[in-house]
Simulated scan of single mutants.
Amino acid sequence: MVARNVAIDAVTAAQPPTAGAVAGAEPNGGRSWAWMRSVRAMGGSQVLRIDVTVARSQRRNPRPIDDDPSCAAPGYGSGGVDMSGRRAASLRTHAHAHGAAVSFMPESGQRFEHALEDDRRSAEHGFTLVEVMVSLMIFGMIAAAGAAILSFSVTAQRTTGARLDDIGALTRTLSIMSADLGQASLRAARDESGAPIPAFVGDSGSGSGDAPILRLVRGGWTNIDGAARSNAQKVAYRLSDGVVQRIAYPMVDGAGPLPPAALMAGVTRIGLRYRLAGAWSDRWDGLQGVPLPEALELTLQRTDGTLFRQMFLVGSGYAPPPREVVNETP
């Protein structure tokens, strides 16, 4: 998204970019992105190659755990356990033979000898109350940990699914707008009452409402059923109740709109700007001397305050050349 914005900004500038490297930063999608643009001539001086690289700004490398002094136990470098201050517990061993003895020699050099005794329990002994309570406590801790892990897994899966759906909706919206704007045509249209409408009409955006904020005529409408219509289609965009909607018309002239298609929800504001000859305008009504702008800038603000900025080329991305006036007088 950032790389495309930088490239379109260079292509639609009033003057061609100069050769060399230029760096900058752009906030987009709630993050800061560092970009670098390099321009060099290809073959002749009329063709320029523009390369754009983008990386996240202020990336922090996590410190390895082994380097964290808080993870090191006293008496060791890292990850060790100091047993010098603990007393060794007595070693109890079940054996079938009576009177046998075993020695335990810790690293401190002390020696403990414990006589083995027959610790086999008879049927009358059973378990003590303390042992039963300890067993129940351990079982409860294991059950609570399992329930917590299961709940965390379900919540993480639900959150991940919602996030992926939101990213997919944003990608589809930008792809559909890119296709519509890239195939914008110069063909004017008429509304339901027969009044003429310019080929491309756009406002500065709005918070919410039923009025379209962008209306254009695009080409390349596929005709799979072979209906008696052209490949041109009139489309419009609007923001209604926090949902970005795309409205299509079955005919370019005089027809009413089809039911709107919801593209993305959770949008509080849409901002639009239009570029021609390097200058930006907040509105476009076809009275700027050419029917189409060179580029369009879209700004989306989500309900959580995140801003997304995307630039699109309109039509071919270039203004049509001026007509040559031919003097027919002899």
Rank of each mutant, 00 (worst) to 15 (best):
M1L: 09
V2W: 09
R4Y: 08
A7S: 09
A7I: 06
D9L: 10
A10E: 12
T12P: 08
T12G: 02
T12D: 06
G20Q: 07
A23M: 02
A23T: 14
R31P: 00
W33Y: 15
M36P: 00
R40Y: 07
A41E: 14
M42K: 08
M42H: 10
G44Q: 10
V47E: 07
I50A: 01
T53L: 09
R56Q: 15
P62K: 09
D66E: 14
P69V: 12
A73D: 13
P74Q: 11
Y76V: 06
G79R: 10
G80N: 08
V81W: 11
V81Q: 12
V81K: 11
S84N: 12
S84E: 08
R86V: 11
S90Q: 14
L91W: 13
R92P: 04
H98Q: 15
H98W: 08
V102F: 15
F104D: 15
P106C: 13
G109E: 12
R111E: 15
E113T: 13
A115D: 13
E117I: 15
D119A: 14
R120S: 13
A123C: 04
A123L: 15
E124A: 15
L129H: 03
V130D: 15
E131K: 14
V134C: 04
S135G: 13
S135K: 09
M141D: 04
I142H: 00
I142M: 14
A143H: 05
A144I: 07
A145N: 10
G146E: 09
A148S: 08
A148V: 03
F152V: 01
Q157D: 04
Q157F: 05
L164A: 08
I167E: 12
I167G: 02
G168W: 00
A169M: 04
R172E: 05
L174T: 15
L174F: 06
S175W: 03
I176R: 08
M177G: 06
S178K: 11
L181P: 07
S185P: 01
S185R: 13
L186W: 07
R190Y: 12
D191G: 10
S193L: 13
P198W: 02
S204D: 11
S206I: 02
S208A: 11
P212W: 06
L214N: 02
R215M: 06
V217H: 03
V217P: 01
R218A: 14
G219N: 02
D225Q: 02
D225Y: 00
A227T: 03
S230H: 00
A232D: 13
K234R: 15
V235D: 02
R238C: 02
R238L: 13
D241F: 04
R246G: 04
I247R: 07
M251Q: 14
D253E: 14
P260I: 00
L263G: 09
A265L: 05
R269L: 08
I270V: 14
R273T: 07
R275P: 02
A277G: 01
S281L: 09
W284T: 00
W284M: 01
D285P: 01
Q288E: 10
G289Q: 01
L296Q: 03
L298F: 03
T299I: 04
Q301M: 06
G305T: 05
L307S: 07
L307F: 05
M311G: 01
M311Q: 08
L313K: 03
Y318P: 00
R323K: 12
P330Q: 10
